[in-house]
Write a protein that binds this DNA or RNA. Structure first.
Length: 472
DNA sequence: GTAGGGTTAG
């Protein structure tokens, strides 16, 4: 038996407490550093920090592993995140509610409903009670997969189980309804909630504004935008970007730029998203100098450009007729490991067509098809440029050999056929456009074509004068 | 853990 004095006993006690305090503090510090590395996608460094910690006697806890799981899910994918659970078990740490919620979020991000449901099952098997966030995430996952009915069932389950929905629950519900085409229902739900005293967040307004933007409902958006200000809710960069996009999308460049100036004068740092929105609009409306100024700003700030930003800049070079610069920039994007997406290919094809390089454009179009991309817009660019360059019969061949068409496809053909006074064919195409449910567009030549062909009663459409020397 | 950017016709 070792005899220790009273003094020694106190000393040992104090040192144990100190060690524990130190350990607690250090694990917390370790977690902060791992979290910050994971947030900046530096997983290898996060792992190195973990190893260093263990070497120094600082053991990771459940929080450390949960942070790692979130990081792996975000950077690599769900499987990599799930793998961390095995490491937790080896370290003798049990996964908790946050572990499974993070994994469900990871599964949702990559659109895997099966994994999301598996995580819920595993959670229940372990006797962990899901919270509002588990249900929020599951609801989000169902909506993301287009399964609105089941998503709504999860919302009902939240209420049935007497779990209090949080702000995000309603946001996810409203967003899910909007993204699945139930914008009217989402709007009604929003107004009903407001009548019941629900105070919407800026996120809620952003979701609704974005939904109306897709419908090109400019007035509706502006009403919401005014409402935000009346309620004293502070708009953020997303609100401004969405409002601007809607203005630009409906060709209200003046109003869009006004919002941009309001954002600037309000001291909002305009980020990469808003920069791309503005540059794209300036390029499209031919405001060359303003576009250049904005691009110079983008470069000066030193944003970490992603593929969408490169697409914006590549498109700018093409519109300026600088093909070589466009290709160089594409090379830069690829060398940075960024994958070209549907926009990149479409922009390339459009750029090639506008430069009159139809052979290469056509080859790239078939290459795009073999890669499994949806080529509707790219094909429309090809058809439209062929028409404008006078190769309208070849454009018709391309049109007839493909079943991909929308109102843009018809619009290009009808307008250009009408310009060549080939009204009969133009009218036929226009009617088949309307019959196929592609929608209708307002164009001088389309109306001419219809009126001239006598296919529909005069006055049904926007009527314009018909050339006096016209004959069918 | 919920919201925003980039491509075609008129």
């Amino acid at each position: 038996m070792i005899i220790v004095s009273e003094e020694e006993r106190y000393g040992l006690l104090i040192s144990a407490v100190m060690r524990r305090m130190c350990l607690g503090l250090s694990t917390k510090l370790l977690n902060i550093s791992v979290a910050s590395l994971c947030r900046t996608r530096q997983l290898e460094k996060a792992e190195a920090a973990l190893i260093d910690g263990i070497r120094l006697g600082v053991l990771p806890d459940v929080v450390t592993y949960n942070i790692l799981i979130t990081g792996y899910c975000q950077v690599v994918g769900f499987d990599a995140g799930y793998h961390v659970i095995h490491r937790m078990k080896e370290a003798g740490i049990n996964p908790n509610l946050i572990t499974y919620n993070s994994l469900m979020a990871g599964a949702t991000r990559q659109g895997s409903l099966a994994c999301c449901l598996d995580m819920l099952d595993e959670m229940l098997d372990r006797g962990i009670v899901p919270d509002v966030w588990s249900y929020n995430t599951l609801m989000h996952c169902f909506f993301k997969m287009g399964r609105s009915d089941e998503a709504y069932r999860i919302f009902s389950e939240i209420l049935l189980k007497n779990i209090s929905p949080c702000q995000a629950t309603y946001n996810i519900l409203i967003n899910g309804l909007c993204k699945n085409g139930y914008i009217k229902n989402a709007m009604m739900l929003f107004r009903n909630l407001q009548r019941q005293g629900y105070v919407p967040q800026i996120v809620t307004y952003n979701i609704l504004m974005n939904a109306l933007c897709k419908l090109k409902r400019w007035k509706g958006i502006m009403r919401l935008f005014d409402e935000i200000r009346e309620l004293g809710i502070a708009p953020n960069a997303i609100t401004y970007t969405t409002a601007m996009k809607c203005c630009f999308g409906s060709r209200r460049y003046k109003e869009g730029l006004q919002i941009f100036f309001e954002m600037k004068s309000g001291g909002y740092a305009y980020d990469l998203f808003s920069c791309c929105t503005i540059v794209a609009a300036l390029v499209k409306s031919g405001r060359r100098l303003a576009a250049e100024r904005c691009i110079a700003h983008m470069i000066k700030i030193g944003y970490d450009l992603d593929i969408a930003s490169y697409n914006t800049l590549i498109n700018w070079h093409f519109k300026e007729g600088k093909l070589e610069k466009a290709y160089n920039l594409l090379g830069v994007a690829e060398s940075r490991g960024l994958d070209c997406d549907i926009y990149t290919h479409t922009i390339l094809i459009d750029g090639l067509c506008k430069a009159g390089n139809f052979d290469v454009a056509e080859r790239h179009l078939s290459h795009m098809k073999t890669m499994g991309f949806n080529c509707l817009v790219a094909s429309n660019c090809f058809i439209n440029s062929l028409c404008k360059a006078g190769y309208i019969d070849y454009a018709l061949q391309v049109f007839n050999s493909s079943d991909m068409r929308d109102s843009c496809t018809y619009s290009s053909l009808v307008n250009n056929l009408s310009k060549q006074r080939r009204y009969r064919l133009a009218a036929q195409l226009m009617l088949s456009c309307i019959r196929s449910g592609c929608g209708y567009w307002h164009a001088k030549h389309s109306a001419e074509a219809l009126n001239a062909s006598g296919s529909v009663p005069m006055g049904s459409y926007h009527v314009v004068s018909i050339p006096s020397d016209f004959s069918l």
